[in-house]
């Protein structure tokens, strides 16, 4: 029997126990609104959202290697029962084999980035601009505190509204974007940038399991009128805290359309979709500000670039891609 419980505790258990594919964003599996497919006699879960005529899957199966094909086949059965198609987003390279075996078309759709904390330092010429920016923010009176959510929750909600307003009333994104609050808040870390008692910006960090354990620089927001360097100053303070704790890795998460490389593509990929991703990277800032997001990540001089993939059940498809956007509340 196939279970489709909306129970994120199953997902939390799966991402902790089976980080086989090393998905640095795996904590998104416990986002509110996700659905889960699990089999009673098989470890692991598939995380997804029904969206229009698609089932939009986040990551690959969070499961041990031997269980992954079985879960994917059960997911294909579920999609067929519902007369829907599967499109999977933020697959890692290690997820691809099962999808290729099932006839999916797998294409790179961006990359995620990670920094080794044991060797990281802001000393030296390459970081001069970044250091100056942080110093300017601190001279403005900014102080940075790690704090529980309760202390800042109300001001964070206000700041979020201001931030969305400054984006022309943009819709709040979900699914592939971190959250705060809910039953797993105690597993996240929150760093707040403050002027006096007024919240200026914040960064929420979520746990990363697997072979590069640490934290992921997840949801981050600042007031539209905040001085330059606020986010960088907050992140620097968080890095220093993590380094003091002996944390190995800081992940910066997925940036769509970035880090594209022909060498990262799998056999059978769509060259047209690959072309399209390059086009969105170069000229698609109005669709998604990938270059702006990448510029923030790049200034920390990342150690590892991890290609991320999309898998299409019936060949590369524009409406399937649009349904990924739709699952994120971007459409």
């Amino acid at each position: 029997m196939t279970g489709t419980l909306a129970r994120s505790d199953i997902a939390l258990d799966a991402i902790r126990c089976h980080p086989d594919a090393d998905n640095p964003s795996s904590f998104l599996a416990v986002n509110e609104g996700n659905r889960y497919l699990h089999l009673p006699d098989t470890p692991g879960v598939i995380v997804y959202r029904p969206t229009g005529r698609y089932l939009v899957q986040f990551g690959g199966p969070f499961a041990p290697k031997e269980a992954r094909p079985r879960l994917l086949r059960a997911f294909l059965d579920l999609a067929a029962e519902q007369d829907r198609e599967i499109v999977s987003i933020q697959l890692q390279g290690a997820d691809a084999a099962e999808y290729l075996d099932e006839g999916f078309t797998v294409n790179q759709i961006g990359a995620s980035y990670a920094l080794r904390l044991d060797t990281f330092t802001l000393r030296g010429t390459p970081f001069m601009q970044l250091r100056n920016k942080i110093a300017r923010a601190l001279r403005s009176g900014l102080t940075i505190h790690e704090a529980p959510l309760g202390e800042w929750h109300v001001q964070m909600k206000e700041l979020d509204s201001e931030w969305l307003g400054s984006k022309g009333g943009a819709r709040p994104l979900e699914f592939l974007v971190g959250e705060y609050g809910g039953p797993y808040q105690h597993l996240r870390r929150l760093f707040a940038g403050v002027h006096g008692d007024r919240l200026t910006g914040y960064i929420s960090y979520s746990p990363v399991y697997g072979s590069r354990p640490g934290w992921m620089h997840d949801l981050s927001r600042r007031r539209p009128d905040s001085p330059p360097g606020v986010m960088e100053a907050i992140n620097k303070a968080a890095i220093e805290t993590f380094q003091a704790e002996g944390v190995e890795w800081l992940h910066f998460g997925y940036t769509p359309f970035s880090g594209l490389s022909t060498e990262a593509e799998f056999p059978g990929h769509s060259r047209a979709f690959q072309w399209f991703m390059k086009e969105l990277w170069t000229n698609g800032e109005h669709i998604y500000p990938a270059q702006t997001q990448y510029a923030y990540k790049e200034k920390w001089k990342q150690d590892v670039i991890l290609p991320e993939y999309i898998a299409f059940q019936s060949g590369a498809s524009i409406p399937a891609l649009v349904h990924v956007f739709r699952a994120c509340n971007a459409v």
Binding site: E279, L280, I318, P319, V322
Partner: peptide
């Protein structure tokens, strides 16, 4: 390619 970009917009307008 330009046609693909255009159709992305059309699909986003009418995903169903």
């Amino acid at each position: 390619g330009a046609r693909v970009v255009e159709m992305l917009g059309a699909c986003a307008e009418a995903p169903d």
